[in-house]
């Protein structure tokens, strides 16, 4: 059924309020939408890598999750949830359980791009029927804004500080979504909370209900780490997508499709100037040009892959 925001509000809320994420955090917004894409009658086992989302939603004795939830460590959400999925397969086969369960793992970019990459790769390669969702906020926010391989170039973090000699992080961000496409899994998508959430919701639904492994990379702004006022969450997502810093696309069985093409591609300076973490470089024409060139090159590559005209 086609997405309808009004209809989707009739689904039960599967992440309750009362969790301890920061005011204005992007991650719970992402999580809520993804969980709404579950069929009401289906159960789910949700896993999470250690990170903001995990420690804030399951601080003993409170759980914000309406579904069964497991956390074990930082680097192993892929393996942990694949174990639960294996248990489901076995117990269903032997008749020990008969309900339908879906398996979703959440990890931040630290737990996904970096320390948890091996575990994620293994889980996807083995073909477990599960969705791995990276809520990408571009740094290790849980431990206090340290750089990750998802951190954008020149971002000021506590381990890539903007100093008098070195102006913040020195590398462009890893393109994890492409790495996941290379796994040859049936469904990979990159998305963000946008407008009425149609893109995120529909991709979540496809990811959950495509048999086999699926990977979603979802932008999740962090007001604290990116340094912007909390009420600008949706604006930040929009700038990320419209500057093509964060293109939205999906890859179904290896076939790329662009989900959204900005009518007017905004300059990357809009993105840089919107956040305090780029304050030291946002007005530096050389830096801006360098970043713009990289953004353009990645965007052109993506357009080609999607069979779109530049």
């Amino acid at each position: 059924m086609a997405y309808n925001l009004k209809e989707s509000t009739t689904k039960p809320e599967r992440l309750t309020g009362g969790h301890r994420m920061c005011a204005g955090c992007g991650a719970p917004v992402v999580v809520r939408t993804i969980l709404r894409a579950l069929k009401e009658e289906d159960h789910a086992v949700i896993g999470a890598a250690t990170g903001c989302l995990e420690v804030s939603t399951f601080l003993y004795p409170y759980t914000a999750w309406k579904d069964s939830f497991i956390h074990s460590a930082f680097e192993n959400a892929g393996a942990t949830v694949s174990g639960a999925e294996a248990a489901y397969t076995a117990m269903k086969r032997t008749g020990k359980i008969d309900d339908t369960y879906k398996f979703i793992a959440f990890g931040g970019d630290g737990g996904t791009y970096d320390i948890g990459l091996q575990s994620l790769s293994g889980a996807m390669e083995r073909g477990h029927d599960m969705v791995y969702v990276c809520y990408d906020n571009g740094a290790y926010m849980n431990t206090g804004i340290q750089r990750s391989s998802a951190t954008p170039k020149y971002a000021d973090t506590t381990t890539s500080p903007a100093g008098s000699v070195v102006p913040g992080k020195q590398q462009f961000r890893k393109d994890l979504t492409t790495v996941m496409v290379a796994h040859g899994i049936p469904y990979v998508a990159q998305t963000a909370p946008m407008k009425n959430f149609k893109d995120l919701y529909e991709k979540a639904e496809k990811a959950i209900y495509t048999p086999g492994p699926a990977f979603l990379n979802v932008l999740a702004p962090c007001p604290r780490g990116w340094r912007y006022e909390t009420d600008r969450l949706m604006e930040l997502c929009e700038i990320a997508v419209d500057t093509c810093f964060w293109p939205m696309f999906e890859v179904v069985n290896g076939e790329y499709t662009l989900s959204y093409k900005p009518k007017n591609k905004r300059p990357i300076s809009d993105w840089l100037e919107a956040q305090g973490r780029f304050k030291h470089v946002a007005k530096n024409p050389e830096v801006v040009a360098e970043i713009q060139a990289e953004i353009d090159a990645r965007w052109e590559r993506l357009l080609k892959l999607c069979g779109e005209e530049a």
Partner: peptide, 26 residues
């Protein structure tokens, strides 16, 4: 056997998958 065999990519993941499976009820 009726077992689901998970040939993981490391021992860390072996134990992690076992924890996932065990807590799932297996």
């Amino acid at each position: 056997v009726d077992t689901e065999f998970v040939p993981v990519e490391s021992e860390h993941s072996a134990m992690s998958a076992c924890i996932g499976a065990g807590t799932a009820g297996a």
